[in-house]
């Protein structure tokens, strides 16, 4: 039945170019419209259609709980179906652990890491904290007096703050982390000097940094990156690097040939001119990593994340 439908879809798409009649890839964004995963899914949709990799691509939003609701639904529905893809990322790794999700990333077939973004710590321009070293001194003196504005508890921002505390010898449990819903609210809180510092992906703060309203104390990259004119954590005396990456995965139960075919399609998409243009306009970094290298990296990050979430006290 499913194959018949798929055949009908393909036939329809070929017979009616221009009229959106069928989908031969459907990408699930396990988040509401507007967020990073949704934008990634829609950018893939655009690139795949524009490059003729796929006649028609559908994006399905299944929001909720750091992507774990979408992931659970996907693992069940996409079993053995090579036309289904799901977008995900580092946030999902943390969410699976904190939500005690019964479905983990083992239940899907990771295809490739696509993009990534580094975290930055910022203060309002008027703040007396000038460098990362100043912040570390304050944090060591009285952890509670340093309030951090960032995204939801257990997300990349929270994990980075916890890791930083741990690296400089402060108990991550003592980090006074204030969770805001959505990047905009956290940014507003820092701009309004409501909290001591703000922590989030650079894209969130970029416009304000360029306008001089915020000062970057440190970037979570291993070495300096072109877009941010600021020292890395390491230069600031904290030996730590964190990346918030986004990936695409396929369903479970696929044959090796099917996985290879999907990987080839995704690779073609990632190397296309329209994808590169998207990366540029959105300021995303290309972090292409596929196959076994990606799987090994993923396993490493899951273990590290579990350790820090235990330190913060979010996972028992």
């Amino acid at each position: 039945m499913k194959h018949l439908a798929a055949a009908a879809f393909v036939a329809g798409a070929l017979a009616l170019p221009g009229l959106a009649l069928a989908a031969d890839y459907s990408i699930m964004a396990p988040a509401g419209p507007g967020g990073g995963w949704d934008q990634t899914a829609r950018a893939m949709q655009e690139a795949m259609t524009a490059e003729g990799i796929s006649g028609n691509v559908q994006v399905i939003n299944v929001p909720g709980a750091g992507g774990t609701i979408g992931l659970a639904q996907f693992a069940q529905e996409a079993n053995g179906d090579p036309s289904r893809l799901i977008v995900g990322g580092y946030v999902m790794v943390g969410a699976i652990l904190t939500n005690k999700s019964p479905v983990t990333l083992d239940a899907v077939t990771p295809i490739a890491r696509l993009t990534g973004e580094f975290e930055v710590i910022v203060v309002p321009a008027a703040s007396d904290i000038k460098t990362l070293a100043d912040l570390v001194t304050k944090l060591k003196a009285d952890p509670g007096a340093v309030s951090w504005a960032g995204g939801s508890a257990g997300g990349t921002d929270h994990i980075t703050a916890g890791l930083l505390a741990k690296t400089v010898g402060v108990d991550p449990k003592l980090v006074n982390y204030v969770a805001f819903s959505g990047g905009g609210e956290a940014l507003a809180a820092v701009l309004g000097s409501q909290t001591t510092v703000g922590i989030s992906g650079y894209g969130e703060f970029q416009a304000q940094v360029e306008a001089g309203a915020l000062r970057v104390l440190g970037v979570s990259a291993p070495e300096r990156i072109a877009v941010v004119d600021a020292p890395t954590f390491k230069e600031g005396g904290v030996d730590l690097s964190v990346m918030n990456w986004r990936m695409v995965a396929a369903g479970p139960g696929l044959s090796a040939e099917q996985v290879a075919a999907i990987t080839a399609d995704v690779q073609k998409m990632a190397e296309s001119a329209s994808w590169k243009k998207t990366l540029e306009t959105k300021g995303w970094m290309n972090t292409w990593l596929a196959g076994d290298d990606f799987k090994a990296q993923l396993a490493k990050e899951i273990a590290a994340t579990e350790a820090v979430l235990k330190d913060i006290g979010l996972v028992q």
Partner: peptide, 26 residues
């Protein structure tokens, strides 16, 4: 401010970038 305060605004931000508009203080 380039500050998307709602889901709608976040999508609009993505849309503006498409039109070459970079919202922000400048």
């Amino acid at each position: 401010l380039g500050l998307p305060t709602s889901a709608t605004a976040a999508i609009m931000l993505a849309g503006f970038q498409q039109y070459g508009l970079q919202p922000g203080p400048l």
